[in-house]
């Protein structure tokens, strides 16, 4: 992914140039893009698709986490990681390690970043413990808390934004509202209400192509937010089953 540094926050756009890509989902190779040229203007988009199980792979490419087989993804400004994914909160690392990693990469002050997360999450006592001992909901809240640390020009969210009535949800939503002013968003969530609360347009991935539709409500009705296949696993988890073979 080429990242042209604009220098002025708020100016963000993604250019997909002659993009061709395929990905293995549930053991099958699927064409994601075929010589696609697309230009995404700044805005707040809900990612919708007739194939919701491919949204994760699509986000990987848009967020520059995985380069396509052919073509380029050019992005102006800073793009967040897909906030809400469990990814980083796994294994033997601790919450402190993850905060330190994010702080170091994004040039943040570690003590303040640590203070913010520990004041925000309901179980700061887990921050010193390895992730493999954390309950799932604590991991989820930690992931969303991490997403508030650096300021981005484009926020990418993959998962349901915290919605259960709790102190964490209220605090996180309030702070995220502050973060989002003047910024762009690509939201991939199974909750349709969140799409309406946070997005103004639909970014539709259908037939190896992207389209933008201003009528978000009608798009939400047309495209399923969730699929049974998605519950069965993701492209990433399909590949990770082979990790056990790495014992020497």
């Amino acid at each position: 992914m080429d990242r042209a540094f604009a220098g002025s926050p708020g100016l963000i756009m993604i250019d997909l140039l002659s993009l061709s890509d395929d990905v293995t989902v549930h053991g099958r190779s699927i064409h994601l893009f075929d010589n696609l040229d697309f230009h995404l203007e700044p805005g707040r988009y809900a990612l919708l698709s007739t194939t919701p199980e491919l949204r994760r792979s699509v986000l990987d490419v848009l967020a520059g986490l995985r380069p396509p087989r052919r073509g380029h993804v050019r992005c102006t400004g800073s793009v967040s990681w897909p906030i809400g994914r469990n990814g980083i909160a796994s294994g033997k690392a601790t919450g402190q390690d993850a905060i330190e990693l994010i702080s170091a990469i994004h040039g943040l002050e570690y003590p303040r970043a640590c203070e913010l997360v520990s004041l925000l999450v309901p179980r700061p006592d887990y921050l010193d413990e390895p992730f493999n001992t954390w309950p799932q909901y604590v991991k989820q809240e930690f992931n969303f808390a991490l997403g508030l640390l650096p300021q981005f020009d484009l926020y990418v969210i993959d998962g349901a934004i915290p919605f259960e009535e709790s102190r964490f949800t209220r605090m996180w939503q309030s702070l995220f509202e502050d973060r989002l002013v003047g910024k762009s968003l690509i939201l991939s969530t199974p909750r349709q209400k969140q799409m309406l609360d946070y997005c103004t347009k639909a970014l539709i991935y259908d037939g190896m192509d992207f389209t933008v539709d201003d009528d978000l409500e009608s798009c939400i009705e047309r495209y399923p937010a969730h699929s049974v296949r998605e519950e069965m696993g993701t492209s990433a988890s399909a590949g990770s089953s082979d990790d056990a073979e790495f014992f020497f």
Binding site: F5, G107, L108, A113, L119, P150, Q151, L175, D178, R179
Partner: peptide
């Protein structure tokens, strides 16, 4: 709590080097 968190967030942003998001 929210005011304190907002203040922290502002201070985190302020302490960040201007070109820290340069690729």
């Amino acid at each position: 709590d929210l005011m304190h968190l907002r203040d922290l967030m502002v201070r985190i942003d302020a302490a960040r080097a201007p070109r820290s998001s340069h690729p």
